[in-house]
């Protein structure tokens, strides 16, 4: 398939990347970041929202740090999955992403900033033209959303990254850098409930790394992924749970692949007083997946109870 035309920029340092971004913005040119490219390239091949410039983060040194409390945005999922230093829930989730070959390219940053997915949207240009496009990539036609029609405002495409929920339950923070300097925030605040904007990244801003609390090694838990095939498949639903060893009151639960963002369910957990069944029911109530992945939403919604229950198993 043919890539849309764009210019690839390959900065060697963070500051060079910021400068390129700034210059493009000043010139009014749009651009995307590319990390491992395993999400961006398929979308580009399908000519989905491609931009005239792409800035690669791959040539920048020092972004691939992997340790218990810090993971660089360019750390490859293969390395995260194989690493002894990473928290086991995170490396387990990483090992369940896509396939072993894709994980060689795929990065943590790309996984957290993954574009949302929808079967009306992740299609070739010809295919999308045959449904007269949709809101998320309307090619200037003002097309409506095909999943929830007649609203023309919101895109409900699904976030199907595997790793975010595990980092959320471990209370990770993201470090962003952009033209206006760096900022740090809890990962739970990074996402924005909109299938198009996805997260709080400002133009020109990108993710440097994530950090984890110092006591993260004392936490335990697990990640459960629902998928049909044990390779390639995105999660149809996913749940992570973690708690401080020996202290179930610290339980945190997060889910993915149910809506446009991954979500940590603090309210549901606290209202249920740690009763796993109650948590399952509460999350079941508060999440409403839509029909845009391969399995039907009713099923995915019900499965979240099973996944959370299993993730919480000691």
């Amino acid at each position: 398939m043919l890539m849309p035309p764009f210019e690839l920029h390959q900065p060697k340092s963070v500051s060079e990347a910021c400068t390129i971004a700034k210059e493009l913005m000043l010139a009014g040119d749009e651009f995307d970041w590319i990390a491992g490219g395993t999400d961006l390239i398929p979308n580009y091949k399908w000519h989905i929202n491609s931009k005239p410039h792409v800035i690669s983060l791959a040539g920048i040194d020092g972004l691939s740090e992997i340790s218990m409390t810090e993971i660089g945005c360019m750390a490859r999922l293969h390395d995260i999955a194989e690493s002894e230093d990473v928290h086991p829930i995170v490396s387990d989730a990483a090992s369940k992403v896509a396939s072993s070959l894709i994980r060689r390219n795929a990065t943590l940053g790309g996984n957290l900033c993954l574009d949302t997915r929808c079967f009306w949207f992740n299609q070739t240009e010809e295919w999308r033209s045959s449904i007269d496009w949709c809101h998320k990539c309307d090619c200037g036609t003002g097309a409506d959303c095909r999943v929830i029609p007649n609203q023309n405002e919101l895109c409900v495409a699904t976030y199907q990254g595997d790793i975010a929920p595990t980092l959320m339950v471990l209370d990770a923070s993201v470090h962003l850098i952009g033209p206006d300097g760096t900022r740090v925030m809890p990962l739970v605040e990074f996402y924005k409930l909109d299938g198009m904007t996805r997260n709080v990244l400002q133009p020109g801003e990108f993710m440097l790394k994530i950090t984890l609390p110092d006591d993260v090694a004392d936490w335990t838990g697990s990640y459960r992924k629902l998928r049909v095939r044990d390779s390639w498949d995105f999660p149809e639903a996913g749940a992570a749970a973690a708690w401080k060893k020996g202290d179930r009151t610290t339980l945190r639960v997060a889910t993915t692949a149910l809506e446009s963002i991954p979500r940590r369910h603090d309210t549901e957990v606290s209202e249920s007083n740690g009763d796993v069944k109650a948590i399952c029911d509460a999350v079941f109530k508060s999440t409403k997946p839509v029909n845009n992945t391969s399995l039907p939403p009713r099923y995915r919604r019900n499965m979240i109870k099973v996944l959370i229950k299993r993730a919480c198993e000691e």
Partner: peptide, 27 residues
Amino acid sequence: CDMGTCGCCTVMIDGVPRLSCLTMAHE
């Protein structure tokens, strides 16, 4: 497939097996 789903395009890059259909040439 050109999309990362078949592995037919696998090559070794500095000893690491990678999908050439999902790799930018200039990288």
